[in-house]
Amino acid sequence: MASSGTAVSLSNVRKTYRIGEPVHALDGVSLEVPRGSYTAIMGPSGSGKSTLMNLVGCLDTPTEGTVVVGGRDVGTLSDRERTRLRGTEVGFVFQTFNLMPRLNAVENVALPQLFQSIDRDERRERARNLLERVGLGDRIDHMPNELSGGQRQRVALARALVNDPAIVLADEPSGNLDTDTEADILDLFDEFHEGGTTMLVVTHERHVAERADRIIHLLDGKIERIEELDGAGGSQAGSPAGRESGGGDE
């Protein structure tokens, strides 16, 4: 649903690191992520997943090619503009949750809005709503260390959504969770996706990737193949099988 335009597009992106001899972390990747889509990226270690994440997340700039996020070419932006774009158009969900340890749940969720200078009451209100939507309405004042892993990841998801970003980037979002909690989180992803949120999930677990509309397989910095899954938009389709087949670790 709600797929009007492109959330992120990469065209012929190359990222080269010079550690001794040049290493092409990404070697000519072109990719369109439509708004409202749910994309998974899979690939073994060193295939360029993290680099791709960093580029889409406006944390890094490409050596060659263009990365467009929310309609803006990341490579042409100043550091400040890039940070601002990141703050407003990208929501991050990390494997290790990455909550601020001294802020409680609602403050963590509101943190991105703090840097956009949004009024405190407004921030709290929005954060509270999101926490309710991820099922933590009764835990808004809890500190991260008072929350379980699954709850922390919900907080992180709420934080990712707080600025209403063009895309939510999830890097192994269930990597530190047990199977039941993982299912809960992925169900939440589905729920938000159905609500129109653009999701990009990096994983090396097949059953996680299968929640998406399509899976991009990366290998050695290039797109190996793109796997379109059935029932695009209706993400529940095919997932039970995917989950059972389990660890699709290539």
């Binding site: 703050g87 990455n98 909550l99 840097f115």
Partner: peptide, 16 residues
Amino acid sequence: TREIGIMKAVGAQNRD
């Protein structure tokens, strides 16, 4: 360091 990384990831400017 990690907290700084988080803040920057969610949009903290250098001056923040």
